[in-house]
């Protein structure tokens, strides 16, 4: 879906910040009636541009003080089934995301743990024992920032007063 106009991008920007807003609030912010805003939101959902909603939690306040990204290389390529590895790794509750990547590693995992000893337990008991897991590289997350992404820079350009 690439036939979006500036209003659609504005709606996406608003929902990406706070998806709890109703069509009425979105409409007021974009200069649309409530039904018109609702139709646009529905169209974005139906097209899969809005893939769902995410509850944003403060992991640290909830007792998960450590986030580690693991690069995992499979040890015996071709002999171990990727499906088996993916199924097993996805079933680990502490593994938040699994991405199949191309390059230095085969998979990139995001792992949360309460503290470093807890992370060591997850790594030894659950990750190292996965079928086919070979070399593992760990990087401890220090800070993280999600950016809004390329959502309608056109209107921002138009908003800049001419010099």
């Amino acid at each position: 879906m690439t036939d979006l106009d500036d209003t659609d991008f504005a709606i996406l920007r608003l929902l990406a910040q706070d998806a709890g807003q109703g069509a009425g609030a979105i409409g007021r912010a974009c200069g649309l009636s409530q039904p018109a805003a609702w139709r646009r939101i529905k169209r974005l959902r139906d097209a899969g541009v809005i893939r769902g909603q995410r509850l944003v939690l403060d992991a640290e306040k909830l007792g998960f003080g450590v986030t580690v990204f693991l690069g995992v290389k499979l040890a015996t390529k071709g002999r171990v089934s990727l499906d088996d590895f993916e199924r097993a790794v996805s079933a680990i509750p502490e593994v938040q995301t699994v991405e199949h990547v191309l390059g230095l590693y085969d998979y990139r995992l995001r792992v949360v743990a309460r503290d470093l000893p807890d992370f060591e337990r997850v790594l030894r008991r659950r990750i190292m024992t996965l079928p086919g897991a070979g070399e593992v590289e760990a990087n401890v997350l220090l800070s993280e920032e999600r950016r809004p992404g390329p959502l309608g820079s056109i209107s921002e350009l138009l908003a800049v007063p001419p010099r």
């Binding site: 541009v49 809005i50 893939r51 769902g52 909603q53 403060d58």
Partner: peptide, 19 residues
């Protein structure tokens, strides 16, 4: 209020937007 829940955000599928 305790800041444990920061909010609910829409997840954007960039592939569906042509990326």
């Amino acid at each position: 209020d305790a800041g444990l829940v920061k909010g609910v955000q829409a997840a954007i599928d960039w592939a569906a937007l042509g990326y």
